[in-house]
């Protein structure tokens, strides 16, 4: 049976280190869902996974599987499947024996094992690879076997630590599709660690952003982009090109550009964030339309990167090639209220 993972106020500091790797991280992954832990390298995301797997001991906090604390359990009694960045197939075993490993350790009936192995080989599109050795497989094939191996014993939770980052981009896309398909079949609760935001939003239904050991935000992908919880999250997701200082009030944000309409729970001093693609070159006046002077234009072929100055604020925007702007042009820019978010300074 698959079960949920609850991580509660988890702390971790490496011996001898001054700064903690993880600070009071609390994260709930309901049974059957997929959460990606997204963060830059050194953010503590692999340590988090390692603690859940039982390979690293936390300095504080708790990890619960199906509501039961597992901190005192060694890895082999946590009922997990883990896939690491490298496939780490056992070189002395065949593909089928690798996949069967977890079941054999649990003493599963031989007929059941054979059946399950065949089923999983089909699922990862490697039928007929039963008696191959791991050294005869390509990197992508090895990682598929590793995935099948982790899932074979129907573990309660599947943990993936940057599983595709060693593969080339084309293959990475295929693997994301495979993982989604496997999840549809198996329904295993999945915790997925990655530094690639496209991978995180592709594979998971929830994304937890980890920055410098702090859990900055845990939300569905769309909300992450639309309503980043902090400047750090926005920066990591590439949405901090326009950050304008001002003060948030109910229904509006006062800044150098004037009083802009928007909907934000934020109150008081903050930063207004708007993505370059969200800014629209308008042809008439209205609410949230600001006059600006184009200062620089770079033709990227598919689009133009434009900088425009408005009341001493430099706005970054992108336009389609059909809008030929030149430095010095006077333009009106519309900042759509639904595309605006405010974070603390």
């Amino acid at each position: 049976m698959t079960s949920g993972v609850s991580i509660e106020t988890l702390d971790h500091t490496y011996p001898g280190a001054t700064a903690p790797t993880l600070r009071q991280v609390t994260l709930d992954v309901p049974a059957g869902t997929r959460t990606a832990v997204l963060g830059p390298s050194g953010s503590g995301k692999s340590t988090l996974l390692s603690i859940v797997a039982g390979l690293t001991a936390p300095t504080g906090g708790d990890v619960r599987l199906a509501g039961r604390s597992v901190l005192r359990l060694p890895p082999h009694r946590r009922d997990l499947g883990v896939v690491f960045q490298r496939p780490l197939l056992f070189p002395h075993l065949t593909v089928a024996e690798n996949i069967a490993f977890g079941m054999r350790m649990r003493g599963t009936d031989r007929v059941v094992v054979r059946h399950r192995v065949a089923e999983l080989l089909d699922a990862v599109a490697l039928p007929g690879f039963t008696d191959r050795r791991s050294t005869e497989l390509s990197g992508g094939q090895q990682q598929r076997v590793a995935l099948a191996r982790a899932l074979a014993a129907r573990p309660a939770v599947l943990l993936l630590d940057e599983p595709f980052s060693a593969l080339d981009p084309q293959l990475r896309g295929d693997m994301r599709t495979l993982l989604t398909d496997l999840h549809r079949r198996e329904g295993t609760t999945t915790l997925f660690v990655t530094h690639d935001r496209d991978e995180a939003t592709d594979v998971a239904d929830h994304v937890a952003v980890l920055v410098d050991g702090d859990l900055a935000q845990h939300a569905p992908p769309a909300q992450l982009f639309r309503r980043p919880a902090s400047l750090a999250v926005a920066r990591f997701l590439g949405g901090a090109a326009n950050a304008i200082a001002g003060t948030a009030h109910p229904g509006r944000f006062d800044c150098a550009l004037g009083s802009l309409r928007l909907d934000t729970p934020h109150r008081g001093p903050g930063l207004l964030l708007v993505r370059p693609r969200a800014i629209v070159v308008a042809d008439q006046d209205g609410p949230n339309v600001v006059p600006a002077t184009v200062t620089a234009v770079t033709d990227r072929g598919t689009h133009l990167d434009v900088q425009a100055a408005s009341a001493d604020v430099i706005l970054h925007l992108t336009t389609g090639p059909a809008t030929p702007l030149r430095p010095g042009d006077e333009v009106s820019l519309w900042l759509p209220p639904t595309q605006l978010s405010v974070v603390g300074r």
């Binding site: 082999h76 997990l80 350790m105 573990p155 943990l159």
Partner: peptide
């Protein structure tokens, strides 16, 4: 470590 995560006892 992989073996342990797959449920193998020491």
């Amino acid at each position: 470590r992989v073996a342990a995560t797959l449920g193998a006892r020491p």
